[in-house]
Design a protein around this nucleic acid. Structure first.
Lengths: 86, 86, 86, 86
DNA sequence: CGGACAAGTTTGCCAC
DNA sequence: GTGGCAAACTTGTCCG
């Protein structure tokens, strides 16, 4: 009886599994390299005198749509108005 | 010859070391419990309809002094003005 | 229409928000105090001649070992589930 | 006096800031594409009948095992240093 | 919506 | 003592 349909261990072949693992691991490596590149750019920004923390926030804001950013800012203002900023 | 002053392994006694480890581990546990309590309060806030993400931001703002919050907001506004918010 | 369920801004009352903020800030303070206590114990350990870096490692290892037990059980269960030996 | 070194707001020029933001956003996009590719491979693995959760575990374990080698060396060095056996 | 995974922030350590 | 580096912990996001 075939394993297919039983959520089994080795539905196809060992080679298939090895291939999948290799591909994922390779992609993970690529992604990590890009993350390192991003880190480098932030270091460069810092060297140029920019405020990295704020820069991250700006990047994050641009990733959302403008409406959402403005709404969250508005909520924040309301909360701060209620509890005060001390 | 005494071990003291040699940055040695067992400067005093095993009991002393065990006591230190126990105390630290107990404090770590307590700290974790408080972290869990904090998490619970945020869950409660969410249930009450508050925006948890913004709430975290407000707590964080209040932990800093007002001047710093305003300065970071100002920098953010400048950056966004330069690159735009799209 | 009620704001509840819409990720609203001021769902209940100012008092509720103030209460939540106070509780979180109080818990944050408690947690910080415990962190300071932990720091103190490490200082004491150092005074007693222990190597703090190694001591941190020991604490960390013991915590991981404890976590590892459940972890290993989870892995075993997962693998056994796949193998089909319930 | 120059702003550089003061965590300044606009240390160089608008073009510089725009360039930095563009580069980061481009890298973020690349990284997201790779993440999507990884996702696709997992979907393919699932289609082939593999248990994705277990597969993730295997990938994770292999990464940890690799890291563990250096880690163990570091621990050994640390402990040996304390024992005084250089 | 809850739990796994990734990102970001903070904290402690070390070199200067 | 300070500032950069590394690691721990917290927070946010995404998938099931």
């Amino acid at each position: 009886m075939s394993d297919i349909g039983h959520n089994s261990i080795a539905p196809d072949s060992n080679e298939r599994l090895i291939s999948l693992v290799d591909r994922i691991e390779r992609l993970n490596d690529e992604r990590k390299n890009i993350s390192d590149d991003i880190k480098d750019v932030y270091v460069e920004a810092k060297s140029a005198g920019y405020d990295v923390k704020v820069l991250r926030r700006v990047i994050s804001d641009r990733a959302k749509d403008a409406a959402e950013v403005e709404e969250q800012d508005a909520i924040r203002d309301m909360y701060l108005k209620v509890v005060g900023l001390y």
